[in-house]
Simulated scan of single mutants.
Amino acid sequence: MTPPPTWAITAEPFDSPVARALWRAYYTEVSDRYYLLHEGRGTDPVELEREIAAHSGAELAPPTGRLLVGRYGGEPAGTAGVRLRDARTAELTRVFVRAELRGRGGAALLVRGAEDAARALGATRMILDTRGDLVEARALYARLGYAETEPHNADPYADHWFVRSLGQDLG
């Protein structure tokens, strides 16, 4: 009998072909969700290409950042990024799991891996922002011990800001 697939979380260069493909999938999904909700249309292809190119993920490169890739059964399935904002604060970003693999525990593993990476970078707290329509993300962060807090940036697409102490693993 074949064992069920498992998750493996590893660091990956932000500009690897796998990382770029997952970034494209992530950005396409969140952009389309935004435009469908607010304008009743998908993302304009020219805008999509421009924005994907403009946000390479270079801030997720060592020594002050990390990009993690989750593989499910050996296949690239998701990402989580972390970047230092100051000596003790890291920011969680690009948390994504391909739609067909959601509900299998990958997102929580990616976030916990990003927390470990942030601790290794010297961070004692993690911050993040997300949009109101990304209800699954907000539920995930709350379940993992993140608390809503005051805005820590002026991102026009951010509606909710979260923080979590990294001093200990809370499960």
Rank of each mutant, 00 (worst) to 15 (best):
V82P: 01
R66L: 09
R102M: 06
A137C: 08
W7F: 04
Y146M: 08
R20N: 04
M1T: 12
G42K: 12
G57S: 05
A123L: 06
A154T: 15
R50M: 03
G103R: 07
R119A: 08
L121G: 11
G105S: 04
P3A: 15
L22G: 14
E29F: 06
V82C: 00
A80Q: 10
L109G: 09
E148Y: 02
L128I: 04
D44Y: 01
A61C: 07
G171S: 13
L101A: 06
W7N: 02
T2R: 09
D15T: 03
A90E: 08
E75Q: 15
Y34P: 05
R164L: 08
Y157T: 04
P17A: 06
D44G: 01
V163C: 06
A114H: 05
W23G: 03
Y141V: 03
D169G: 03
D32P: 07
P156H: 03
V95R: 04
L121C: 10
A11P: 14
L84C: 04
V46H: 11
S165F: 06
A123P: 00
D133R: 01
A118V: 06
G103E: 10
A118I: 02
H160W: 13
R98P: 00
R20K: 13
T124V: 14
T93D: 10
E91H: 11
A154C: 05
D116F: 00
